[in-house]
Design a protein around this nucleic acid. Sequence first.
DNA 1: CGGCTTTGACCAGCGC
DNA 2: GCGCTGGTCAAAGCCG
Length: 174
Amino acid sequence: MNDDAETNLARSFSDDTHSGFELSEICLSDEWMDDDLVSAVSGMNHSYGYQTSDAAAVFFSGSSSSLIHPEPPCTNTFIAATFPASAVNQIKKEKKKVKKRVAFKTRSEIEVLDDGFKWRKYGKKMVKNSPNPRNYYKCSLDGCPVKKRIERDGDDPSFVITTYEGSHNHSSMS
DNA sequence: CGGCTTTGACCAGCGC
DNA sequence: GCGCTGGTCAAAGCCG
């Protein structure tokens, strides 16, 4: 990512035109990276956008409206320093099972953010170590395999954690 | 009436 | 093998 991109990102985050939520973190692993998912997330955050190059991940600070980690942070060292070991183990297991997955965290009042696609809720589950339920959604277009999970951050309920899985076999619905 | 949400039941994977 | 947990199914009810 070059300086211009960083400047644009910072400027974008300073832009009050985006409504209702702030992007806090995006984590795109190399193995999970998928163009369709990237475009889905881009569409969701169309008011400010972001860039990925060969970077495994890009982390933003929505609250400070600045790019806090300009370098690809998804190294083993970064992950070990950022997440508890149990979470890392879980991530490793998940990576073995599902490769095309994107997780990100937004500060938002609403849980289901408009990303240009239409979703049908198919499940809700209380999960361990979280006071908040996890909601399960499928893309409502027939034959589209994309799913997403949405849950509020247990530590800070003002954040919503959204996980996309799979890739759309169609374009945006809006 | 069709599409959606809700919610309890069921299933599969994993650790012990 | 058993119990726990996360993910999915499907019936019932709600709503526009």
